[in-house]
């Protein structure tokens, strides 16, 4: 039986199209690395200044000048390049990165994202999240559907300070895959065995659910 995070990651890997430039946010999204097959021609961008990184293979010695933005010692695949931070963020701001995956504290029906600050509790700074969220062509949020106390993270409207407005295209949680549409959050896939009414009950935002078209994952 796959864990919730494995199911989220396996589902998220299906979002990646061969030929794309993809950024993997810190935390859960970084683990997507291991779901992208070597032969897939995708260049993974890391904002510290590398395009075309991949995890080290077992036994491969670390190069101490070669990290990703999460600090893991990585290596590169054919077609890779390295560059400075200004070039790296120019790539992001010019929307030359096709797809990014990010975690979330909160995400809402309008596609607003909050993932950097909990006032009074957690404020280590924003890093590169704001530019990635605002400018990458397609932002897919990967997160648990509810926090550890069971409170919904998929809200009618975010309450925490925003990372960026109207930036999210799709949300993948352990319970559902949802698209941000002008009408609201439309459920694309629902977790195997989960009742649509229970999904709605676990979600603050109103969900658009067409049971005749619902996929399972």
């Amino acid at each position: 039986m796959a864990s919730d995070t494995q199911r989220i990651l396996a589902r998220a890997a299906r979002e990646v199209i061969p030929g794309q430039i993809v950024n993997l946010g810190i935390g859960l999204p970084t683990r997507l690395f291991h779901y992208l097959p070597d032969e897939m021609e995708v260049l993974v961008h890391s904002e510290n200044g590398v395009l075309g990184c991949r995890p080290r293979r077992e036994g491969e010695a670390p190069d101490h000048d070669m990290i990703d933005s999460g600090g893991a010692y990585i290596t590169t695949r054919p077609g890779a390049s390295v560059f400075d931070s200004a070039t790296s963020f120019a790539m992001i701001r010019r929307s030359r990165v096709d797809l990014t995956f990010m975690g979330a504290f909160e995400v809402d029906a309008a596609g607003n994202l909050a993932n950097w600050k909990i006032p009074g509790k957690f404020s280590p700074g924003i890093g590169g999240a704001m530019e990635l969220a605002q400018k990458v062509r397609r932002l897919v949020v990967l997160c648990s559907h509810n926090d550890k106390h069971g409170n919904p993270k998929i809200l009618a409207r975010c309450r925490l300070p925003l990372t960026a407005r109207s930036c999210v295209s799709r949300i993948i949680t352990d319970k559902a895959v949802m698209d941000v549409t002008p009408e609201g959050l439309a459920v694309v896939d629902i977790a195997e065995g989960l009742d649509p009414a229970d999904l709605q009950a676990a979600t603050e935002a109103a969900l658009i659910i067409d049971e005749s078209r619902l996929g399972r994952f």
Binding site: E47, A86, Q134
Partner: peptide, 25 residues
Amino acid sequence: FHPQGLLAEKIRCAGAGHGGFLTDI
């Protein structure tokens, strides 16, 4: 705190002899 790309660009601007830049970030 500054967003990382803005921090980089603020430094780049000083290095290029500019007074600043315009952004929507």
